[in-house]
């Protein structure tokens, strides 16, 4: 499953990239809506700011979870191979990075439950 080297590196950084996407999305949307006083906007009966945060969190979390499972499988596979040490290393690093990313992405979703949208 190793795939190309570029693919391996992307998989290794998937969680952190997902975090970057989540971060950009939630910060960008909050800043734009609050900055322009559009915070009261609602979508499907929900306030748009917390909804963006939660959906961005959910999507990136799901993506990271997929990457985690994937990297875990390729790690197990790589471990079985006799020589390919680099594959083993990269896929192990991918497991660790994606695992940590899950925690970090979750943390970035917490504010939606605690804070008012734009105060």
């Amino acid at each position: 499953m190793g795939g190309s080297r570029t693919g391996q590196v992307l998989l290794m950084l998937a969680g952190l990239i997902a975090w970057a996407v989540q971060f950009t999305a939630i910060y960008g949307v909050t800043s734009t809506l609050c900055g322009r006083g559009w915070a009261d906007a609602t979508l499907l009966g929900m306030e748009v700011v917390p909804m963006t945060i939660l959906s961005a969190t959910f999507v990136t979390l799901a993506a990271t979870a997929v990457a985690l499972v994937w990297s875990f499988r390729s790690y197990r596979q790589a471990k079985r191979q006799p020589v390919a040490i680099v594959d083993d290393f990269i896929s192990h690093a991918a497991v660790l990075v994606n695992g940590l990313s899950i925690v970090v992405i979750l943390w970035h979703g917490i504010p939606a439950f605690i804070l008012p949208a734009c105060a």
Binding site: V103, W107, I110, P111, I114, L115, P116
Partner: peptide, 14 residues
């Protein structure tokens, strides 16, 4: 530790 501190800090902020 941080999973506890972060929500606490956010609550104080609120």
């Amino acid at each position: 530790v941080l999973s506890v501190l972060l929500p606490y800090g956010l609550t104080v902020m609120r």
